[in-house]
């Protein structure tokens, strides 16, 4: 029995085994850990692209979209409009007028923010053109007060902007310019 043990594991073999683990196994475990982390980040990126596309399509496919988001009883088209996510309390797939998203998607929380700027050069007497710039943010930990109170959401450390998208939108003008 003792002889078999001596034959089975020598000091050199033990050192070789340790070397194999150090050279081969530990880096492999590290690579796997990095891979998992990267895959999670990539999942967020793909989700942000999906959310961004859906939101932008909603903008572009709305009829007379600028009229809908302009202030009530407006007398001229505003030079700039900002569309902010409605906050956790109103969390749903869409805000009431489909101007922003604030939703859980693929185990992460995403918000869209859009700045819509009038392009004078492209606007005519009968049509008005706006540039839509939209950002998709991943929000880490929504604050409890955002759930319980009706206030706009805030950003904190750990929130990341994952995707940006820009497009032009043109519609008929309500006013003779």
């Amino acid at each position: 029995m003792i002889r078999a043990f001596k034959k089975g594991v020598t000091l050199i073999e033990l050192l070789i085994t340790i070397t194999v683990i150090a050279i081969g196994v530990f880096p492999l475990i590290g690579a796997l850990a990095n891979l998992v982390e990267l895959l999670l980040m990539q999942q967020d990126q793909v989700s942000a692209i999906t959310v961004g596309r859906n939101q932008m399509d909603l903008f572009l496919n709305q009829h007379q979209f600028i009229d809908r988001i302009s202030p009530a009883n407006f007398t001229a088209y505003p030079p700039e409009l900002t569309l902010v996510a409605p906050g956790i309390r109103d969390r749903s797939l869409l805000s009431p007028n489909a101007t922003s998203m604030d939703l859980e998607y693929n185990n992460a929380h995403f918000r869209t923010f859009s700045k819509i700027t009038k392009i004078e050069n492209l606007s005519t007497t009968s049509r008005v053109t706006y540039l839509i710039r939209m950002q998709v943010w991943k929000v880490g930990f929504p604050l409890p007060k955002e759930v319980s109170e009706d206030i706009p959401p805030e950003f904190r450390n750990g929130d990341n902007m994952l995707f940006e998208l820009a497009a032009l939108y043109t519609q008929s003008s309500r006013f003779e310019l």
Binding site: Q42, V46, I49, M56, L165, A167, L168
Partner: peptide, 20 residues
């Protein structure tokens, strides 16, 4: 993935060009 993001941006940019 980077290509996918660029492609989406390209799609919308190219459509925007039409409005001119």
């Amino acid at each position: 993935l980077e290509y996918m993001g660029a492609k989406v941006q390209a799609d919308y940019a190219s459509m925007s060009g039409l409005i001119h």
